[in-house]
Design a protein around this nucleic acid. Structure first.
Lengths: 139, 139
DNA sequence: GTCATTCTGAGAATCATTCTTGTTTAGGCT
DNA sequence: AGCCTAAACAAGAATGATTCTCAGAATGAC
């Protein structure tokens, strides 16, 4: 089915998706634009965002937002999630998705068709715990 | 422990947290600013965002980002998650958090101290499935 | 009361993303 | 091939949420 879908993608959409798949990690819209621009399939920034939005709507691309506000994009089939430090902002990839096969109860779904999910854990990394003098309740 | 923390919060921080707790739903920074401004504890927009960031760092406030890019804030103790339609953007609250007591394996944590998490499901709502003519593979 | 420090908020600045608009491309038709 | 229409494109302007700046207000120590 996924192949059926991709068979119908436009050239630009294929190029975008390929660039994401080739990337070793999540990319921001700007990153993606810069990479494509440097490659042999350059395209405008507006085009990048326009198609990223469409690919999200087809369920082929997923995005998450860093605390900094920038959005990172990845292909949906890469089911990766992260620990993010609320203090220094560093992120650490989880080896396994703890929600992978989690089934949502039917009555929760209510006809909704799930395509993908995002799951992020926020907390303090070891470094920031050490210099947590800024925590109000610090004894 | 949570009370220890809040005991050390500044007046402004208490006001913010109270406003969030009183709210029947998640609020954006702008919403929050407007509400406080209309209340008897008005405060500037910069102050709202400044303290929201701190409250997030203490683990008292959590935020999620809509596809539209706006950030919604809620008190951490309210463990709510959503289904969001990638097409029309409507969101539907889940009655129960499916990750509530989910324990992360210790080796995944690596010293990281989790404070809260975000979990969002994206997909198509019944309405958008009906007029999904825009799906590339639609037969 | 005075001084130093922290906190505040109005408005400017930032910056990722989206919109506008004139141009280019693709493909069907004769 | 030549022409036509509709869709796709890209550059730059516009948007809008969030962050920064900085001068004044509040706070607290002495």
């Amino acid at each position: 089915m996924s192949s059926n879908l991709t068979a119908k993608l436009s050239a630009r959409q294929e190029q975008l998706l390929e660039a994401l798949r080739r990337a070793e990690q999540e990319l921001s819209g700007q990153d993606l634009h810069a990479r494509l621009r440097a490659s042999n399939t350059p395209m405008g920034l507006a085009t990048v965002y326009r198609h990223l939005r469409l690919l999200q709507q087809w369920g082929l691309v997923r995005c998450r937002h860093l605390p900094s506000g920038e959005a990172l994009f990845a292909p949906t089939e890469r089911d990766e999630h992260h620990l993010t430090c609320v203090d220094c902002g560093s992120t650490h990839r989880l080896a396994h998705c703890p929600v992978h096969q989690l089934a949502l109860p039917g009555e929760e779904l209510n006809g909704f068709l799930p395509l993908f999910h995002t799951l992020e854990f926020f907390g303090l990394c070891p470094n920031c715990q050490r210099r947590q003098g800024r925590l109000p309740a610090e004894a």
